[in-house]
Simulated assay, not measured.
Amino acid sequence: MELTTKELAKYLDHTNLSPESTEEDIIKTCQEAVEFDTASVCVNSYWIPLVTKELTGSTVNPITVVGFPLGATNTATKVFETNSAIDDGAEEVDMVINIGELIAGHDDNVTEDIRKVAEATHAKGKLLKVILETSYLNDDQIVRGCQASEAAGADYVKTSTGFSSAGAKLADVALMRATVGDRLGVKASGGIHSRKEALEMIEAGASRLGVSATVKILSE
């Protein structure tokens, strides 16, 4: 696959979710995103008001994470986080599923958790991505997680938080794409460090990439 740097940039959610990030670090992340015209800047919700301000006048969206990184917060908390972040300026929300409930086979509970967040997100006209944390899951669980996300009304499924034992894998991305077809987006996140790896993820079926190595990837 061949993409220009400008084309590739619009696949990228320029991500800074480090707990050590300062205001200066977040501003720098925003400046990099605006320079390269990425799809978005993805940060923890505390920083959304600052990011929204810094991205004003650009085509880069502020986005945030919910139930992050473990997914085991209750649904009401995830919905509150979602509403608060959107009110502060978030255009997209990346939520973590209840991973243990998926592994246990309690798919109805997983679906309902996602559905409530999807309803809150869509009520405000925004997009929802659902993080499966594929490093903990087998193929059957990945498929079921995708099916639950689609049934609940999500807009994307996403591989990883970047805080687990492994990030995105090509086989997982391909499986997710095969499961959701062209009905949902697929976001590959975690462990993407080069232009080659980014393009391979897109070829496997990713329509968005979560990366912190944005500058390196787009400067290659």
Rank of each mutant, 00 (worst) to 15 (best):
M1D: 13
T5G: 06
K6D: 12
K10W: 11
N16A: 04
P19Y: 00
C30D: 00
E35V: 03
D37F: 09
T38R: 01
S45L: 12
W47A: 14
T52V: 00
L55S: 03
T59D: 12
T59W: 02
T59Y: 05
T64M: 05
F68V: 03
F68I: 03
L70W: 09
G71W: 01
G71R: 01
N74D: 13
T75K: 00
T77V: 14
S84Q: 15
A90C: 08
E92V: 07
A104M: 14
A104V: 10
G105K: 11
D108I: 04
E112Q: 14
D113T: 03
I114D: 10
R115P: 15
R115M: 14
T121D: 05
H122V: 14
A123M: 14
K124H: 06
G125P: 07
T134E: 03
N138H: 06
Q141S: 01
G145S: 08
D155S: 06
S160A: 12
G167R: 02
K169P: 00
A171W: 13
D172H: 14
D172V: 01
M176Q: 04
R177V: 12
V180P: 11
R183S: 15
V186R: 08
I192E: 02
E197K: 15
M201Y: 07
V211I: 11
V211Y: 04
T214Q: 01
